Amino acid sequence: METDGYKIRDQSKAHYVTFTVVEWIDVFTRKAYKDIIIKSLDYCIKEKGMIVYGYVIMSNHIHLVLQSASNDLSGLIRDFKKFTAKAIINHIKTEIESRREWMLDLFSKATGTHNRNKVYQFWRYGNHPEEIYSEKFLWSKLDYIHLNPVRSGLVEKASHYKYSSAKNYVVGDGLLDINMASNPVVNVHNDNAFYKSIVW
C-alpha cells in the first residue's frame, strides 16, 4: 500500500514511479551502486516480467515507467526495492566506501519511524505511482525522465547520460533492453514538452 496518497489500482497498467533514497542520500554518485540498479532491472526484465518503457538513475532517486507482464506491479516493485536495498547495503558494508559509517547510521535511524525494517531502511516508503492513461501522458513522463540529467547540469543532451533510457530512444541502444514507446508525430507548432523528443 502506498503511504503518500497514491495507489496502484490497476495492476495491469503501466505506471510512472519514483524510488527515493531515505534522507535524499546521494548514494548513486558512485558507479557501483548505479550498476546494481541496472543489473537488477535487467534481471527483472528477463526473469520477472518487468516491462520498462523509460528510466533514469539520479544521485538519490530513480524515475521509471514500468508495467508488469503478470499483472502484479505492486509485488514486482516490492521485490525490486527489497533486493536492491539489501544488495546496496551489503556493498556499502563490504567494499571500500569512505561514507560507510555515515550512510549506515542514517539507514539505521530511518527504521525508527515504523516496525517493518529492523536494521536498515534504504528506500523511502511510497513510490508516488501515476497510471499511464494516454500516449501523450506517457511521453510527458518520458521527457521528464530523460531531461532530468540535463536540468541537473550533468549533460548537455539527454542521450549523453549513460544511466537512462534516452539513448535507447535516440540511437536504439542502451544499458537495458527496454520496451520503447512509439514516437509521437513531431508538431513544430506545438510547444508541449512531449513533442520535443527530437532535441534529445
Score class of each variant (00 low, 15 high):
residue 99 R to W: 02
residue 99 R to T: 00
residue 99 R to Y: 03
residue 100 R to A: 09
residue 100 R to W: 08
residue 102 W to A: 14
residue 104 L to F: 02
residue 112 G to A: 15
residue 114 H to I: 03
residue 114 H to T: 12
residue 115 N to P: 01
residue 119 V to Q: 05
residue 119 V to S: 02
residue 119 V to E: 15
residue 123 W to M: 01
residue 123 W to E: 05
residue 125 Y to I: 00
residue 126 G to C: 01
residue 132 I to W: 04
residue 133 Y to C: 11
residue 133 Y to N: 14
residue 133 Y to L: 12
residue 135 E to V: 06
residue 137 F to A: 14
residue 137 F to M: 14
residue 139 W to E: 08
residue 140 S to G: 09
residue 141 K to F: 09
residue 141 K to N: 09
residue 141 K to A: 10
residue 143 D to W: 15
residue 143 D to N: 14
residue 145 I to F: 01
residue 146 H to L: 04
residue 148 N to F: 06
residue 148 N to I: 01
residue 150 V to Y: 12
residue 152 S to M: 04
residue 153 G to L: 00
residue 153 G to H: 01
residue 154 L to C: 06
residue 156 E to D: 12
residue 158 A to N: 08
residue 158 A to V: 11
residue 159 S to G: 03
residue 163 Y to A: 06
residue 165 S to Q: 01
residue 166 A to H: 13
residue 168 N to G: 02
residue 169 Y to N: 08
residue 169 Y to E: 09
residue 170 V to G: 03
residue 171 V to F: 09
residue 172 G to H: 07
residue 172 G to E: 09
residue 173 D to S: 15
residue 174 G to F: 05
residue 175 L to F: 12
residue 177 D to P: 06
residue 182 S to W: 02
residue 183 N to W: 07
residue 184 P to V: 03
residue 185 V to K: 11
residue 186 V to R: 10
residue 186 V to N: 04
